[in-house]
Amino acid sequence: MRNPFKREKPAPGGRRQRLGVVQRAERLTPEMVRVVFGGEDLADFTVEHADSYVKLIFPLEGVAYDEPFDVAAIRDSRPRTEWPVQRTYTIRSVADGEVTIDFVVHGDEGFAGPWAAGAQPGDTLWIMGPGGAYSPSPEAPWHLLVGDASALPAISASLEHVPAGKVAVAVVEVHGPAEELPLASPGDLRLHWVHRGEPDPEGLVEFLRGLDLPAGAPHAFLHGEADTVRAVRRFARTDLGVPRELLSASGYWRRGRTEEGWREEKRDWNAATESDDATAGV
């Protein structure tokens, strides 16, 4: 899947559109593929946050785009049916001019997963970003990180930023033992894998209630399937007393929705979480 387009001009808004060149790819688990990008466009690429992410741009097959390839110009001049597909992915790491991204792969489902499964050195992909907002606070008494396979790259990267001596409780839902990855942290890592075939929001909350958690309100990073995140967010706000300034919670996806469908619903989801806070009086 080689990209025939020439180098681009900077995108508006300060987030450059860059051409990433695949350096290598490996399958970490049956459902996780790691792709390492490099190339001159990424030589000065840096990130500020533990949860930094990029937008990956997939041109549609059969659609001829003008050169230089410019996402903003395409959206301004072409019908929506011809817009490239955009997918959001956490940056696993940045080092020596290389950007590493881990992809969840479910067979031939979607755009990004199948692309990653077939990625070869020399393949190219347009990258926009980075964005991000969360890094573990050194002042927090402890850290709670909860998510599923889609959040595993962000949890992995975030754990590496937990200060030494701070407790980090990580709870990760995956399908089974084959999907587990080695995780490490300078902090006191207490890692719990939960094996489930499908999201179970209330089941995960009950699992969290059964843990022997440290005292005090943690800095909480809660990401993954939207309904599960909402349930865990309620638990964090009401049971653990996590204040807004120590809360990072976002639905990466929603069961039964495409990414485009979930994007259209996300504003309502955000409003619903606000309503949860008002109902609970927090």
Rank of each mutant, 00 (worst) to 15 (best):
S248I: 00
S150N: 13
S248D: 07
E8K: 06
P186R: 05
V169D: 09
P218W: 10
P59G: 09
E179F: 07
D239Q: 15
G113S: 09
V232P: 06
S77C: 04
T88M: 05
A236W: 04
E173V: 15
T238K: 02
L56S: 04
A116S: 02
E61L: 10
E48S: 12
E245N: 13
R257P: 02
E31R: 15
P68H: 00
T88W: 11
R267W: 14
P12K: 08
V33D: 11
G39W: 12
T100K: 01
R15Y: 07
G107P: 10
I57Y: 07
L152A: 07
G20A: 10
R257E: 14
L204A: 08
P10C: 09
P4R: 11
G203A: 03
S77I: 02
D70C: 00
A11G: 08
G131M: 04
Y134T: 04
P114T: 07
G132F: 12
G38K: 08
A272P: 01
G261F: 06
G132Y: 13
E245P: 03
L181S: 07
G110L: 08
E40N: 12
A117Y: 09
F69N: 02
A133M: 09
N3I: 14
G187C: 08
V232D: 01
G110N: 06
G197Y: 00
D239M: 06
P114H: 06
P182S: 11
R255D: 13
V146Q: 01
D102M: 06
V22I: 12
D96A: 15
T228E: 04
G132H: 11
N3G: 10
L144T: 02
D268G: 14
R257N: 12
G129W: 02
P163M: 08
V172M: 09
G113F: 03
F207P: 00
P138Y: 04
P186F: 05
A72D: 13
I57W: 06
A72T: 12
D41R: 11
L247M: 13
G251M: 06
